[in-house]
Design a protein around this nucleic acid. Structure first.
Length: 554
RNA sequence: GCGCCUGUAGCUCAGCUGGAUAGAGCAACGGACUUCUAAUCCGUGGGCCGAGAGUUCGAAUCCCUCCAGGCGCACCA
């Protein structure tokens, strides 16, 4: 709808320029938007003011010229007004809004599905936590944000893959194996001091226990180095399986798990460094190899091969991103914890050295979660093993409330997550507010069925009966659903959906309290049943993108 | 010291990439269940948009300088 108005304005301005009514000017970049104040029309445009500054004329005069020459081939305008400093306000015919009821009913779960992406290949990489311990609350936010961004892009016509990068190569994995070995010995009665830099969490004991159960004490007699390698592999495998299970129960399913280790095994890193060296991006200071990231705006160059001959994480990461591009992705989205922001210029430099456009790699920072319980901070420290796991959050507050809570804020704003509030089934918890609207509609439709009221077809209702202000507003906001989705997808901002849902649910609850849907008036009942059914469709489509359930009953 | 993010109602946050009189939820206060679900609704109060200068028809939004909080500044990942 917004696009229709924009096109209509653009066509009019072009006509006016061609007819000499407006002194020659470029067709400006202009805004068509929904005004804050509904008294300013359904849509408003600032063209006249933009043109005014270009050609130095009174914006209201220009607006008047545009207004009197408006072309409206589809006859959707009720009236237009010139207001304020020179806004053009457009009021649309009610039939336009009523017509969206039919569109929604016809398209059902397709309503809001767009093809702005043109099937372009996109990869979203997220979570990517080291398999050295279970996922905790901090990973959960990134998991939901990544998942919903992927859903959004999918629904707007991109071909999306979700990928998890397994950092299974560094020395933190070696520490994991070591930690398990210590617990293993401990459980088998050997006394030893547990080293500082090892993982303290109870899950390490569980892994050791598991090994004892399956293979007994045979590792006590074996070579330590080899045992650590074995335990690393076993523990990594077990923990990764747990991570996958947690994510699955959180509603997050990945298409690929990409192993850093395989990158080395296939010599991706070595080949990459070789080719970058030929292009002059790599130099040696005699002991280490440096990447000239300053060539692309990084504040200093970065080491890619250490003194001891081992490539750094950064080297592997460039190779990884080269691999991504080689798989044909046109847009690559990485979701990171905000504590990694210092790493951004480095990676952008890396992919530009590969000949890729900086714009093709979107780096999204998700701020850390501030975990509370009843208003008081919950202490968290990974190393000591004191942290709230994703599993505990799932058990305590459930998937829907957890996901919704993480989606209620812009991802670059800090988020307080209060376990007590998230768990409460009350008005403090917005997820229920939205779900309740869905359940209420379902309940009304069910009631209508029980009273043998046949659900009407669009041709059998008279949408002009929907004259209540709340009804008009409901139709308007539903008509804007696709625009909201497109905006959220373009900006990669999932939180816009929760705000939209809250508004739609609020309008519905208000309407519900004021009006009866099922009444003695058969025609009115039919029209209202039809409308609330379309509300239910929109609620369902939006909730589906969020990965939150839409319950028939609550 | 340098860099990134944040600063909007008592609290938690939106504000659609520069628009018109800055909005929600919670909390506070007062009302509405014999009714299609009260996990709801209706009403009332509440603001130097961190501060100061600047850009222009127009700034919470953009530029600059400060102030405050968070996070980074590895041959860790």
């Amino acid at each position: 709808m917004k696009i229709k108005i924009a096109n209509l304005v653009a066509a009019t301005v072009r006509n006016c320029i061609a007819a000499g009514l407006i002194p020659t000017a470029d067709l400006p970049y202009m805004e068509v938007e929904v005004p804050n104040n509904p008294e300013h029309g359904d849509y408003a445009s600032n063209v006249a003011m933009i043109l005014a500054s270009q050609i130095k004329k009174n914006p209201r005069q220009i607006a008047a010229v545009i207004q009197s020459n408006l072309v409206d081939p589809e006859n959707i305008l009720e009236k237009t007004e010139i207001a304020g400093p020179g806004f053009l306000n457009f009021y649309l015919k009610e039939s336009v809004w009523q017509n969206t009821l039919q569109i929604i009913e016809e398209q059902k779960e397709e309503y809001g599905r767009l093809d702005v992406g043109g099937a372009q290949k996109v990869q979203v990489e997220f979570v990517s936590a080291n398999p050295t311990g279970p996922l905790h609350i901090g990973h959960a936010r990134g998991a939901v944000v990544g998942d919903v961004i992927a859903n959004l892009l999918q629904t707007t016509g991109y071909s999306v893959d979700r990928e998890y990068y397994i950092n299974d190569a560094g020395n933190q994995m070696n520490n994991l194996g070591k930690s398990v070995l210590f617990r293993y010995r401990e459980l088998l009665g050997e006394k030893n001091e547990f080293p500082e830099n090892c993982y303290q969490g109870d899950y390490i004991k569980n892994v050791a226990q598991d090994i004892i159960k399956k293979e007994g004490d045979k590792y006590l007699a074996l070579n330590e180095e080899e045992t650590i390698r074995n335990f690393t592999a076993i523990a990594g495998e077990l923990i990764l399986t747990e991570i996958k299970n947690d994510l699955r129960d959180f509603g997050v399913i990945f298409d690929h798990y990409f192993s850093e280790k395989e990158l080395y095994e296939n010599d991706g890193v070595g080949e990459l460094l070789e080719s970058l060296k030929k292009q002059g991006f790599i130099y040696s200071d005699g002991e280490t190899l440096w990447f000239k990231t300053t060539a692309y705006g990084d504040e200093k160059d970065r080491v890619v091969v250490r003194k001891n001959g081992e490539p750094t994480y950064f080297a592997a990461d460039i190779a990884y991103h080269q691999n991504k591009y080689s798989r044909g992705y046109k847009m690559i989205i990485d979701i990171w914890g905000a504590d990694h922001h210092g790493y951004m210029p480095r990676l952008w430099a890396g992919i530009q050295a590969l000949g890729q456009d900086k714009e093709s790699l979107k780096l999204i920072l998700v701020q850390l979660v501030n975990l509370l319980r009843g208003g008081l901070p919950v202490a968290m420290s990974t190393r000591s093993g004191e942290f709230v796991t994703l599993r505990e959050v799932l058990d305590e507050v459930g998937k829907d409330a957890a996901r919704y809570n993480f989606l209620m804020r812009r991802s670059d704003s800090h988020l307080d997550f209060d376990l007590e509030v998230a768990k409460k089934q009350s008005n403090e918890n917005p997820v229920y507010y939205v779900q309740y609207a869905y359940a209420r509609i379902s309940s009304i439709l069910k009631m209508a069925g029980e009273r043998d009221i046949v659900f009407p077809a669009y041709k059998d209702i008279d949408p002009a009966l929907l004259q209540e202000p709340e009804e008009i507003n409901l139709m308007k906001i539903m008509a804007r659903y696709p625009e909201m989705i497109e905006g959220a997808a373009r900006a990669l901002e999932p939180h816009r959906i929760t705000f939209y849902l809250n508004e739609l649910a609020s309008l519905f609850h208000s309407y519900y309290n004021k009006n009866k849907v099922i009444s003695d008036n058969e025609k009115l009942t039919a029209a209202r049943l039809f409308m609330i059914s379309t509300i239910r469709i929109v609620l369902q489509n939006a909730l589906k993108i969020l990965g939150v359930n839409a319950p028939e009953k609550m």
